[in-house]
Computed example of a mutant assay.
Amino acid sequence: MRPSPTLGPNAYLVGVAGSRHTLDTPALLLDRAALERNIAKMAATAERHGIGLRPHVKTHKSARIAQMQIDAGAVGVSCATLGEAEAMVHAGIPGVLVTSPVVSTNKLRRLVALAEKAGPRQLMLVVDDACNVAELAVLAARLAYPLDVLIDYQCGYHRTGVKDADAALALARTIVQTGSLRLRGVQAYGGHLQHIAVREAREDAAARLRDEVGALVRTLEAAGMPIEIVTGVGTGTHESDASAGVFTEMQPGSYVFMDAEYTQVLGGDSCAPPYETALFVQSAVVSTQAPSWVTVDAGTKSFATDSVAPIVARGVSGPSQYAFFGDEHGKLIVDTEHRPALAARIEFTTPHCDPTVNLYDRYHVVDEDTLVDIWPVDARGKL
């Protein structure tokens, strides 16, 4: 059978018993059962605490996975970029929030066109600047309904967002005066908190942020501003944030896959991570000539390089250590006793799942040892 140009060279292996171990590599692997359990567990947490779930698409960039999250009870999805939002809306995913400010006339025109396609209350965006609000309001006047916006609050890295309650209130007043925009609430995403290694320190920092956000919301509400939505919360802090009553919805993303970073963070303090690793990069051993390592076919073009090193998940029974070895190659340091053979398949837990996913065109979906489907990474490169 000839390979499918859209599904890639492994398409002929779908449904073949044991095909997980015969893939062309490097290949992005997705454990379907673990993914489904992770989605169900986060949805159950949100339901138990009465908080909305709007998971982040930037992690998986997949309309298929987004729909699974919606089917499990999510109120919508969060998108880091306009391109991601376009991919989700065109796939019919409801309740899309663009979590970064959208600027420039061309992008704002695209946004308004997308809002028109999505329909009333199906697309929101964040704003942090009065000039941006003014231009957006003019373009949004063509819609038959107000365009929903949230005020972005700079509570972490200070990449975007208004600086304090006074600035938030001034911007809120500008928004409600436009007529073409509708203020729905506030976004306060504490990305700087999500990877604090010690659980107690992470929870203390999250509690301080909740106090800060609560005060901001009270200031806006006291001035008569409509605050229906308070959104934020990542995978690292969702356990404490969900039950605290400050946020009305959460935006976790990485919980669906659990990369090496989050496995270390949420598995610290002698606790098992609450979610399973569902995403792997499979590589093959391409050389065994060196005495103290083997070379695999997954290098800097196969993994995100902004984080920890990939961790062997399957294929080596003893201790091992991965090191980047060039664009196309990795060095797997392993003792003689546990040395894998030429062409052996090695699966790695991804260092940082979001940018790793963006390197691939498709997911190879596996059920135990069998390749059962191939899904596109719909929003790959939608920067």
Rank of each mutant, 00 (worst) to 15 (best):
V281H: 06
T263S: 04
V316F: 01
V312T: 12
K331I: 01
P310Y: 01
E261N: 13
S254G: 14
C353I: 03
R314V: 08
Q289W: 13
F257R: 00
K331S: 10
L332P: 08
N358C: 02
G315P: 08
T288W: 04
V281D: 04
Y322R: 07
E276W: 09
V296R: 11
V294A: 08
V285H: 09
V316T: 03
L332K: 08
G330S: 07
A284L: 09
R314G: 01
G267T: 06
E276N: 12
T248E: 08
T295F: 03
A304W: 04
V294G: 10
A343W: 12
A344E: 11
E347G: 07
G253I: 10
A341W: 00
P355Q: 07
F324C: 03
A278E: 09
F348H: 10
V296E: 09
A341V: 12
V316I: 14
D335Y: 05
V312A: 03
T277Y: 00
L342G: 12
L332I: 05
V334E: 06
L279N: 02
T305M: 11
P319C: 03
G330F: 01
P355Y: 03
Y275K: 05
F303N: 05
A284N: 13
F280I: 06
T349P: 01
G268F: 08
T263C: 01
D259Y: 00
A298Q: 11
